[in-house]
Design a protein around this nucleic acid. Structure first.
Lengths: 347, 347
DNA sequence: TCCGAAATATAGAACGATGCACGTAGAACA
DNA sequence: TGTTCTACGTGCATCGTTCTATATTTCGGA
């Protein structure tokens, strides 16, 4: 009575499940999709047949008509361990759902590799989560083609995709406030060369907070590229200038560690001669020698929130949401209160 | 005369291309697959129609019958920037092919998350490239279901999947030889707790080389877990023991940096009191302060080779290949020749 | 000029799910 | 008992490819 012919690969299909459970193919499909109009008895009957036969939905077939339950996660070249936290967070959001995230690496930040986006859309991914891109026109085009959420892109005025961000303005304020409270006043920010919105945002926070605390005359932002050579050259220039600062707020921990390296080479003591604050609170902060104060932007939370928003959007939400995650300062040795023996003012 | 109805999404299909080029659908498919029996004139006709219409193959539809040209790349939790090199390498191998690699993160090393593997197979990926897994029985099962290449798994005797590896035996030998040539003799290896084949292999290289150089009595392997607390506790124990070594060969740069941290805290000078060699030659080695000698295992080359082997296997190769990449020592300050003022022997 | 083989092109049936449009059973109510 | 409503089930066309079996063209040689 079995209707299925003797194909070689012998995959268990929805049809086999339907036959085993004595229901229609459409009913099984409904159960799979958790669609409306399925009685509890039918649901359990189908579920037990699926378990018995070891049925697994064929994603390609699903992609022909419906969803693939696959999300595309596009990350920049991720030598910064902070991105791993984003992945962890999005995995946490997806646990227990049918969705699976697959990751693609974008080697052309700050724009997004069109080939990668296309390839994900070609694969019928249900939505995209793009980290660290900043070309808003391009993102808007992408959002027309597929549900989109971004992380690390403060274009919160847009109407077509959701954004999730660290509150970079507040991050800089936290760092400045902490340094000032610890007795430092001449504070330089070592930032990046780029027109990304994250950078603008964080630089604004730094400048505003310096002004607010009456330290506007000390406010200075130095921009370097991310290459170690450039960072070290710039660090050396800052540290050997006649009007050198008492503290430096660095764009990332990695940069901060390099600054510490250069400072140590120059015989400076940290934090007495120069205090350092990093950003991202990566595991590298904890080395005894470098014990580095850093601003923690919870990558886990960013990833979690972004993945949740993406699923909402896939399920039909049209109105954009823009979410800010509050940063948190983790104080370590590189910025503790300077020794009272030395006067706090510059010059 | 146009046969296509007015569907809303209006996707360009192979049918539209066929109509535009005045050939059959099957002919277009053949061109796409670079299959046998296509004349050059047909090929160019079809290619120009595809370009004109902006045709993009629908991967889900392909997955129903043939290949998806998608490879699954499974990586362990990748806070080690070394994995980024593997990704770079496999991207390099895939550039110019139709294949696209999508990455999944395995949070259950040393075994492989079955859910992740299943999800990739469900998505009809053409083959899998698994990094850092060590459960051979499981890998053999996976290889029965899909073409498989592994990185970081020295089970080179198996007959069903390909392996690509750093020559970990040689890596340890390089480190030992260099340290001995630089005047160190009492050399400890700080390794991990795990029964992975990489670890066995590297420990074997260390032990054999120590014996070969007549330093067997100094050979000592200490195993710690990867957590910072454990690493630091172990480092402290090694560095404060009465028979403490003159040099330590560490499992990774990250661990080496922690050892440097602990040593500095204890007031030891590097390398005069204690020389350190790391492994992976990550960017963290270059900090002036930590300037760390390290063994470079070319992740780029591992990824490149592995991806090439995987494509060969997908194209039909059945005989397994096992490839070793030669490591390279990069000498920096943490292990330069010890000052002659001090006697070289221990005790 | 015709034949047969080789080379190239074609039609159309899969692949495995989805979801529309519809059918039906039974409850609720008169 | 008949009517209406609702919740639940079902049949089947459909998605865009691949690939087999078959048809057609080309071409060298007799």
């Amino acid at each position: 009575m079995k209707s299925s012919g003797g194909g070689k690969p012998n995959r268990i299909t929805i049809r086999d499940v339907a036959a085993d459970a004595n229901v229609s193919v459409a009913a099984v499909s409904k159960v799979l999709r958790e669609a409306y109009g399925v009685s509890p008895s039918m649901r359990s009957k189908v579920h037990s047949s699926m378990a018995k036969l070891g049925y697994r939905p064929h994603t390609a077939a699903r992609g022909m008509r419906g969803q693939t339950f696959t999300l595309g996660l596009i990350l920049p070249d991720f030598r910064n361990p902070f991105f791993a936290d984003i992945i962890d967070g999005s995995h946490d959001a997806l646990a227990g759902t049918q969705y699976q995230a697959l990751i693609g690496i974008n080697r052309t930040t700050p724009t997004v590799d069109e080939g990668l986006v296309n390839s994900m859309i070609d694969r019928q991914m249900d939505g995209l989560l793009i980290v660290g891109a900043n070309d808003q026109a391009q993102l808007i085009e992408i959002a027309k083609r597929t549900p989109l959420v971004t992380i690390g892109n403060h274009h919160s005025s847009n109407q077509v995709y959701d954004t999730v961000n660290n509150d970079d303005d507040e991050a800089a304020r936290l760092a400045v406030r902490h340094l000032v409270e610890s007795g430092y006043r001449n504070i330089t920010m070592l930032s990046l060369i780029s027109d990304s919105t994250i950078i603008k945002e964080r630089e604004r926070g730094y400048r505003d907070e310096m002004n607010r605390l009456g330290l506007g005359r000390f406010a200075r932002i130095v921009n370097a590229s991310q290459t170690p050579q450039d960072v070290q050259k710039t660090a050396r220039a800052i540290l050997t200038a006649p009007d050198r600062p008492e503290a430096i707020f660095c764009w990332t921990d990695f940069i901060a560690l390099q600054v510490i390296g250069v400072a140590t080479e120059l015989g400076r003591r940290i934090p007495d001669d120069i205090a350092i604050v990093g950003h991202d609170n990566t595991m590298y902060c904890d080395f005894a020698q470098n014990s580095l104060t850093s601003v923690d932007q919870s990558g886990q939370m960013l990833g979690l929130k972004a993945a949740s928003l993406l699923i909402e959007r896939i399920k039909g939400r049209e109105t954009p949401e823009h979410y800010l995650v509050a940063p948190r300062l983790v104080v370590r040795n590189s910025s503790i209160r300077r020794t009272p023996a030395r006067p706090a003012a510059a010059s």
